[in-house]
């Protein structure tokens, strides 16, 4: 085994990770994750208000991955190199009375600037401005063929009342790794 599983476990334990997943994000997987998380939130006897917020934001974060994660060429030679990998990572945990939802996925480097600009624009807006921007995009925006309406990130910022905390890590000439860390305070 190449990974130190105890090290993995220890880090997840210290960050109080409730659920984590790495791999392809399918519709069936989302159904399962949402069901597991709903049961966990019920078992924790979380306040309905917090439970609803966490669930809503979780749906948007996961569906962002589902709609927008880019495939990357696999590492390997010959026939292996022809294959494409669809893979992303997702974690949810609760630390110091706040929920953390962390997602990570590959993105083509040429799309980094555009996404960064959008996120920075959303981060500049006040609560009221976010409400107006949401209504504007809802009413005038076109639905993309991926099914997203460009509303996901605005909705996350609105519901959490916090800035979108993101990071881009260059991977190679063509791809970067985009991570998003969303906090939901009690």
């Amino acid at each position: 085994m190449m990974v130190d599983i105890f090290d993995f476990y220890d880090k997840m334990e210290r960050n109080n990770i409730m659920l984590s997943f790495k791999g392809d994000i399918t519709s069936e997987l989302l159904t399962s994750i949402l069901q597991i998380m709903e049961n966990k939130l019920d078992n924790m006897q979380e306040e309905p208000k917090i439970k609803r917020k966490v669930y809503n934001v979780l749906v948007e974060c996961l569906q962002n991955l589902y709609h927008h994660m880019d495939e990357i060429p696999s590492i390997g030679d010959g026939a292996e190199a022809e294959k494409k990998i669809r893979s992303a990572i997702f974690m949810i945990g609760k630390l110091d009375n706040q929920y953390n939802i962390i997602t990570g996925n590959y993105i083509r480097s040429r799309n980094v600037e555009g996404l960064k600009t959008r996120l920075d624009e959303i981060n500049k807006l006040s609560k009221e401005e976010l409400k107006d921007y949401y209504k504007l995009v809802l009413n005038n925006g076109e639905m993309s063929d991926k099914g997203g309406g460009g509303l996901g990130m605005i909705d996350i910022a609105r519901k959490t009342g916090q800035k979108l905390n993101y990071h881009f890590q260059p991977v190679d000439d063509n791809y970067s790794f985009f991570s998003l860390n969303i906090k939901i305070a009690q």
């Binding site: 809503n56 749906v59 948007e60 569906q63 809802l138 997203g148 309406g149 509303l151 996901g152 605005i154």
Partner: peptide
């Protein structure tokens, strides 16, 4: 009980 942003356009 819940709706996602993708549904919000359709509801509109």
């Amino acid at each position: 009980e819940y709706f996602n942003t993708s549904s919000s356009k359709c509801i509109l």
